[in-house]
Write a protein that binds this DNA or RNA. Structure first.
Length: 664
RNA sequence: GGCUGCGUAGCUCAGUUGGUUAGAGCACAGCAUUCAUAAUGCUGAAGUCGUCGGUUCGAGUCCGACCGCAGCUACCA
């Protein structure tokens, strides 16, 4: 028996559980349930990632304490997962006594081992809010290309990477204040020391090949020391012997896996933390993560563990991201679907099944397609697999006293179905769940073909062929039972209903090897109903509505007339327009504003051809501060309406308006 | 910008080390069937394998450039 500890990445405590979290947890849960069906000891722990500036600021905005906020969210998250049948053995929090213990212990051991140091860092400080700003919390002009309003780590326009302190005209996204440069002492883990260790570890096979390539890139370019401290105010654990310093959230987040497990051990007899986490442990540790957090799990985490006296992970299973209809999940498109919204309208097992059909051992992204979702569930699952039980069982109940035949009617077919369990187990073990489900569907096809060929509905009325019909229908039920075994990691609730129908104890993997003979079953009741496309549309509509409510709440602050009048809006006529070479989205416009002219770069090239604009009347923000761009200086802004990806629509003045007229 | 991947029928995907006419499921069309939750079976149509160029007797597969998508680029988490 293998002893296996499994984790999913910790959801962050600043929002609800959505499709992305669900994909990962469903993937993990399928692995876990499969291992348990094999008879392995498999423990599955997770937690909320509670620390960091983001939770602190969200709590402040909601007028509550960080502790109250994270408690509330942890409760919501755990409930959402439970309703999706995610079988966590423990769902803890990184803001816990266990986590503080291990974070401190690990840090101290790294320090004692000479793997840490301190150094002064110059960082931008928001004096208005009284805190240091992360790179993404500062925006300004790109120091290389001059593009306006770029984040503090790299430029979206030209792709340059830089430090936030290099930004031209920086401002804080929290308060809009101009940040000050301040010096602060930070604590580092000396990652370059672990270069050789990580090269060996990566090569020893715990990650997928694509991930190994990515890691090789980082290792080849040389590791840099890892800054693991943050200045107060910060919501996190204090660093020992360092006044006003806290552990960076990514320092204590993976340790949260250990803490959650420790918390489970403390209330479970016979479960020992050290059996799983000491270097000589014979147990396995598996992490399931998204490709966006590979660096934390495959560089920092194993290095930190190994140098603090713990074992390293057995395997890190990295998955790709989800797109919906080819695009990133989006609130305005209604595809940023929260777990709670989904559950109001649909059975969670539909989603488990559909996601499962998409799972593979690679890190490819997966496209979720709503039409495909409906079709997969209805055709493959209901139409093929469940249909086998449905079309066989009624005869067993009505004509054969609810009893299955005493022998197998077609040994070859049964051998095909029962014999698939080895290959299927291998696919589940490797994480190739989508392929496993395709195999299961193919087995269902074989069964349906067999039943159609033998026509039990005709044979049953011929006394000479009555036994044959009994045998065919009984084999149908037995094949269905084997398929339920194969699907049970994906569809635990359906499997439970099937077990009641079959009148058997909980099915284990090896039960697929032996048929039920001369066995009484219960009357058949529909096990799984079809997925209604309208219900799915309601989920999308509800999601879109939530997004709109939220957007309104964010912009509904009223302003006085005096604020509005600060904006000098003018009618302007397009004198000349041309595309900007080197920029995909920009048009350069020359505008007549009555007594003066303006040159403006407008991001409307996707919607308007330059020649069509000449002569048009537009509305211009005349007193907008000039912006230096890569291609020149833009002296104003032309007003246009836009919503998400529906397009850009210029505002126009009706005929009769003259260039230079004030717009109020 | 650099990097890791991906781009194959309307949709979702398979295509092992380059080897004959490129596969599956779904959707679609026709036929059959009626036991089954309009569920099943058979047949069919559908692809310049992102674009351009190269290597080779031979390229979906190898190489290069470009386009598109996703992610990373270490202080968003």
């Amino acid at each position: 028996m293998r002893r296996i500890l499994v984790t999913s990445a910790l959801p962050y405590a600043n929002g609800a559980i959505h499709l992305g979290h669900l994909f990962e947890h469903i993937q993990t849960d399928i692995f876990v349930r499969f291992q348990r069906m094999l008879g392995n000891e498999c423990l599955y722990v997770c937690a909320d990632d509670a620390h960091g500036t983001a939770t602190m600021l969200l709590a402040e905005r909601e007028g509550t304490s960080p502790e109250a906020l994270i408690d509330r969210l942890r409760g919501e998250h755990a409930a959402d997962f439970r309703r999706f049948h995610i079988s966590h053995d423990n769902y803890h929090s990184t803001h816990s006594a266990e986590n503080e213990h291990y974070a401190t212990l690990i840090y101290n051991r790294l320090k004692e081992g000479g793997h840490t140091f301190t150094a002064d860092v110059e960082q931008l400080y928001d004096a208005e809010r009284g805190l240091f700003l992360a790179d993404r919390q500062v925006r300004g002009d790109c120091p290389r290309c001059g593009a306006a309003d770029q984040p503090g780590d790299n430029c979206d326009e030209c792709g340059a990477t830089y430090d936030a302190v290099e930004l031209v005209r920086p401002r804080s996204v929290l308060s809009d204040a101009v940040p000050q440069l301040r010096r602060s002492e930070h604590h580092f883990v000396d990652l370059p020391q672990f270069q050789g260790f990580l090269e060996d570890w990566t090569a020893s096979g715990p990650v997928q090949p694509e991930v190994a390539n990515k890691l090789a890139e980082w290792l080849d370019s040389g590791l840099r020391p890892w800054d693991v401290s943050r200045d107060a105010p910060y919501f996190g654990f204090p660093i020992p012997d360092a006044e006003g310093k806290f552990f960076y959230v990514w320092m204590d987040a993976p340790i949260g896996y250990m803490a959650s497990f420790k918390n489970l051990c403390d209330r479970t007899t016979g479960l020992d933390f050290e059996d799983f986490w000491l270097p000589q442990s014979g147990a396995e540790v598996h992490h399931f993560i998204g490709k966006d957090i590979v660096n934390f799990h495959c560089l920092f985490w194993p290095a930190v563990l190994a140098h603090a006296g713990f074992r390293t992970p057995t395997r890190i299973h990295t998955h790709g991201h989800i797109t919906v209809d080819g695009k990133k999940m989006s609130k305005t498109r209604g595809t940023f679907i929260n777990a709670g919204t989904y559950l109001e309208h649909l059975n969670p097992e539909y989603l488990r099944y559909y996601f499962a059909t998409k799972m593979s051992a690679s890190v490819d992204d997966m496209d979720v397609n709503l039409a495909d979702f409906v079709q997969r569930v209805n055709t493959d699952l209901v139409g093929k697999v469940v249909n086998i039980a449905s079309r066989s069982a009624s005869f067993i109940g009505q004509r054969f006293g609810g009893k299955l035949s005493a022998s197998v009617a077609d040994e070859d077919l049964w051998a095909e179905v029962a014999g698939a369990r080895t290959a299927l187990a291998d696919l589940y073990e490797r994480g190739d769940v989508g392929r496993a489900l395709r195999e299961v569907t193919a087995l269902a096809d074989s069964a349906n073909r067999y039943i159609a060929a033998r026509q039990p509905w005709k044979a049953i009325n011929d006394p000479a062929r009555r036994d044959e019909a009994h045998g065919v229908c009984s084999l149908g039920v037995n094949i269905f039972r084997a398929l339920v075994v194969y699907l049970k990691p994906v569809l635990p609730a359906m499997a439970e209903k099937a077990e009641a129908f079959l009148q058997v104890p909980p099915l284990a993997w090896e039960d697929a090897a032996t048929p039920l003979l001369d066995h009484a079953i219960a009357p058949y009741e529909p096990l799984f109903t079809r997925l209604d496309r309208k219900a799915l549309d309601r989920v999308v509509a509800a999601t879109r509505a939530e997004a709109e409510t939220q957007a309104e709440a964010e912009t509904a602050t009223t302003i006085g007339m005096e604020d509005f009048l600060k904006v000098d809006l003018r009618v302007a006529q397009v004198v000349a327009a041309r595309p900007v070479t080197g920029a995909d989205r920009l048009l350069e416009l020359e505008l007549d504003v009555g007594d003066h002219e303006r040159r403006v770069f407008a991001g409307i090239r996707s919607a308007y051809a330059a020649e069509d604009l000449v002569g048009r009347l537009v509305v211009l923000v005349d007193n907008l501060a000039p912006r230096k761009m890569r291609f020149g200086t833009s002296e104003g802004m032309v007003l246009a309406a836009s919503h998400d990806d529906t397009g850009v629509f210029l505002l126009a003045a009706d005929s009769g308006a003259r260039p230079g007229m004030r717009v109020t």
